[in-house]
Amino acid sequence: MDTRTVLKKELIKELRLEDIGIDDIDDAAPLFGEGLGLDSLDAVELTVLLQRRFGVIIEDIDAARNAFASVETLVRYIETRKDAMPGAGPGLSQ
């Protein structure tokens, strides 16, 4: 399963988007506010999801702002970060 599909499945499951199916999620739609309707409390859960499921830790709030814009930006962020942290389990390089 590709990152996009896994991510959508995880978003639905972990963030309890119970009225939405994978096909309903528009790759370009905003995750927060309009679109998927996530809120600031979901941002913390989304950060945990990325680390637990994809081994990617969000760098900082600015990175989160860009990455959390849509499924498309989030997939790009996951793939870029995974490449930057090979085998990265989520420890931090000091």
Partner: peptide
Amino acid sequence: RHPLPSEDFFR
């Protein structure tokens, strides 16, 4: 720190 468990927070 912003209330997000980010790398920036842990670092």
